[in-house]
Nucleic acid binder design. Structure first.
Lengths: 169, 169
DNA sequence: GTAGTGACTTCAATTTTTGAAGTCAATGAC
DNA sequence: GTCATTGACTTCAAAAATTGAAGTCACTAC
């Protein structure tokens, strides 16, 4: 298929993944969330190769997720920061953090490697799914999913195209 | 670096990404969340190649995220479902959905492609960060991040190793 | 006995990623 | 004034991952 096509899907999850859905991209964004903004530091702290880092940052800049700013004239020096669009990925990061901490803990008594604290009350914050109407957090069992018309049609089309291709062999 | 090393990081985000952090994996998991469980359907609906799908499913099974179950004896037929560990990724999916819908909407009046409804009250649910102490949802500005000791040490080590390597050229 | 179905595997061609090395324009230390 | 260092990359060849098409295998339905 290729990710330019995925980018076109009616599914918002697919469209999100087309932009930020690979390992290095998400790790780079993690660093930017931490406030790392210089190229070499990003390279050191993520472990990505410089080539990869350069192409990813370019892509993220094109997609409006990170901003590249010149902070020094001569020699020219640049720094990378998250745009509002990028900062909006915090719930994704945080959901990943919670999952990783729960299911891939290194030891039972691991200290939190990373905690987010609510500035006003000092308590640690967790990601959750909440119902805006009753204000309650929901668990998996409380939820029912449904497709919109467009996405349902896309899915039918995909299934049919796949079957057709198989038959024509 | 390579992702076996990332898997070892003190950062739970990195460890989560080592398991589920690539485009196809997350798309496949999306399908499993939708209840798709047969190989060919997964292939049709994600658009992944059969080879890729086979290797990803094997990996996910090894990691305990999906379960492979034989539902027919002869001919042998298998189906894939999410384990509890896999189901726990729902907040990740949902955070991606919210972000994709907000920043990569296809039109201003796009109907939701996918909605999750709270079974008890019928209202659509959103992912959010909530403070368990005051129960309020938090925005970026309300939050302060901090590192644990182990992770802070790992980061220092990475920076030093990187500098050392540079100098030794 | 011919045509599927479902869950894959195999293979060659293309694309990505890695890892090491190099570049370029300053700046700081002696 | 010169020599090492910093910061932000680029270049290149080798290795790994992905794609897309085709094939396999064990049935079942007509």
């Amino acid at each position: 298929m290729g990710w330019d096509e995925v980018d076109d899907s009616a599914c918002p999850v697919a469209r999100a993944l087309a932009v930020v859905g690979d390992r290095w991209t998400l790790l780079i964004l993690r660093e930017l969330f931490f406030g790392t903004h210089r190229f070499d530091d990003l390279q050191a702290l993520t472990g990505a190769s410089s080539h990869l880092l350069a192409t990813r940052l370019r892509r993220l800049e094109e997609d409006g997720v990170v901003a590249r700013r010149q902070y020094n004239d001569r020699p020219p020096r640049y720094e990378y920061t998250l745009t509002p669009k990028g900062r909006d990925l915090q719930p994704v990061m945080f959901a990943l953090r919670s999952w990783g901490a729960k299911w891939h803990a290194r030891s039972s008594k691991e200290e939190p490697a990373l905690s987010l604290v609510h500035a006003s009350c000092g308590a640690p914050v967790e990601a959750a799914m909440i119902c805006p109407s009753c204000g309650e957090p929901c668990t998996n069992a409380d939820l029912r999913a449904s497709f919109g018309k467009t996405f349902a049609a896309e899915r039918r089309a995909r299934l049919e195209a796949f079957q057709a291709r198989k038959r024509s062999d």
